[in-house]
Design a protein around this nucleic acid. Structure first.
Lengths: 335, 335
DNA sequence: CTGTTAGCGCATTCAG
DNA sequence: CTGAATGCGCTAACAG
């Protein structure tokens, strides 16, 4: 059976010791080039690949990292994964992906299942930053961990996130400059720093411009699609806002649908601005001003950060990395 | 350090042998309940979890499966992943995910990196069923493998797919029954059985109803967003079809955009039907008749099939599993 | 019922 | 420069 080609087999065929083969394969300085070449050639010829389990056991490294996220079917996360994969491949690592579906129990369950050395490190984007602070406080001591996007503030850990507050502030100012005075806010991620920061940015921008948040104009995201649609429809018909600030992409379609159903012309009657990582968002409606997060880059940064930790490069500098989002205005539509 | 809690440590603390601990942990019939309880209690107390690398090395099993797909950011695949994860968790397995981005080289590279026992089995959805038949013909002998959705016909392997031909036929008949006579076809996945089957179903349905495929009304998907939009726009303005049959979800937004730009009323001037796994597709436009694949179920089936193989349950019956898609008509809009 | 032993494949001492 | 020996943590014969 040629199926069982291991270091021992190579040693036998070449009439040298196992140790020599091992060293040769790892390009050790102790081995002559001639021997190395013999080993490398045969290895290639026999299609040798090291047994990962054995390496893992010996080295206590798995060449695998885990990514824990709420969903994969999400423009932000899927792009982030792409960035993570790119870096992981660069470092020769494999990527385990776990979807929590925003279920905190599952999040902990997955995480716990990784603590026995199945992975070298974890990239996580949590479902809530409130309910299990203690858990994570403890966890960061046990395993190399980087939070990305959905992070824990005030935790002694590495965070990679975006400038939610600033971009939200800017976006709001933009709406105000477009003449909007009655801006409704579609609130998402309310128990996460990102969600709170987005709202704060909105709030502060209003205040700094002599406006105020009207609670009646704030809607909170719920799981039920129809329910979200209804909430927005009711808001529109009862309060006639002149703009919608959507803090998460999930609100875009119901917002459009509601506007269309109620004959609100976009952007003439109502402006819409949304956090959105969908490249085709503007195709859907050219008047949609979007806040686009650097999802791919966040993935790359987070992974890079993790590998710095793994390689003991200390990472010296600050533990928080903040990347800038982009406000993509649609000038042609007057907003 | 309590970090190093292994079977040896348990044995020492309890003054019994390592073997006994191992058997107790695995609930062997050879061990007395009393001893088992002592072991289990201490294990829980010390938070013992077995070292996966050691188990892997010994048992030649990794409790890990790999999923190789073109993209994760795709409604079909992300749902399929959910199904796969569900089954994997049921069997206590972890899931490695690889995105090929339709790059065949990368597809092979990832696959090759898994052949050294890093995973127990592979679920794959290939990027092409033409260019590397030999590769896969060889591969299926080396590793437990299940193809799903994007499969290789005529290969001695397990396939899990959908009824592309039939549903495409039915959908076309539906359009014809709605009075459409000049149906344009937006062709995707052309080098995959699924894509070909969809087109054949369309073709045959036309023929069986006294119509014919007009090559001028067939557009093929390209990577470039703008290009797709242009293709459709040109088609619409030059040939004025009365329906669009979109064989992949990626065509939906450009199709809508083009129609809107050219003032084609949907569904009055032109009907649109599309393969689409987006739950919110009808929100986007209530007149969109969709062909929905059972993505989640495909994931479940494919994974179940793989575990049957892994558990040597032979799986006896046929190697091809075909699940039915659903044609969701929008009666309210007259089509 | 429990313990002794051997070995999975590899990497790393330490001798030569 | 090369090789013999050891052990990572766990499981599985085989003995007792």
């Amino acid at each position: 059976m040629s199926g069982e080609v291991n270091i021992k087999r190579l040693a036998q065929e070449l009439n040298i010791s196992i140790a020599t083969v091992s060293k040769a394969l790892n390009d050790s300085y102790e081995i002559s080039l001639k021997t190395k070449n013999r080993v490398w050639d045969l290895a290639k010829q026999l299609n040798y690949t090291p047994n990962p389990a054995a390496s893992n056991l010996r080295s206590n490294k798995t060449k695998t990292i885990a990514v824990i996220i709420p969903f994969v079917a999400n423009n932000f996360f899927s792009r982030a994964i792409k960035g993570i994969e790119e870096i992981a491949r660069k470092y020769g690592h494999h990527v385990l992906i776990y979807q929590t579906h925003e279920d905190i129990e599952m999040e902990m369950s997955f995480t716990n299942s990784l603590l026995n050395g199945r992975v070298d490190g974890i990239l996580t984007s949590v479902s809530s930053s409130e309910y299990n602070l203690d858990y994570y406080k403890n966890l960061v001591k046990k395993v190399p961990l980087v939070f990305f996007d959905r992070v824990y503030k005030d935790l002694d850990a590495y965070n990679v996130a975006t400038d939610d507050y600033e971009i939200s502030y800017d976006a709001t100012v933009h709406l105000i400059e477009c003449g909007c005075k009655k801006i409704a806010y579609l609130y998402g991620l309310e128990n996460l720093p990102a969600g709170k920061a987005r709202f704060s940015g909105f709030e502060d921008a209003l205040q700094d411009n002599g406006l105020m948040v009207d609670d009646q104009l704030v809607i909170k995201y719920v799981e039920d699609e129809e329910q979200n649609l209804k909430q927005i429809s009711d808001l529109l018909s009862q309060h006639q806002p002149d703009a919608l600030f959507s803090s998460i992409e999930e609100f875009v379609i119901p917002a459009y649908t509601a506007c269309k159903a109620l004959k609100f012309q976009i952007p003439e009657d109502i402006k819409i601005i949304s956090f959105s990582n969908q490249a085709t968002a503007h195709l859907l409606n050219p008047s949609l001003t979007t806040i686009t997060q650097p999802a791919f880059e966040i993935g790359r940064e987070a992974a890079t950060c993790l590998f710095k930790i793994l390689n003991k490069k200390g990472h010296g500098d600050d533990q928080d990395i903040i990347l800038k989002s982009t406000l993509i205005k649609r000038e042609s539509t007057g907003c």
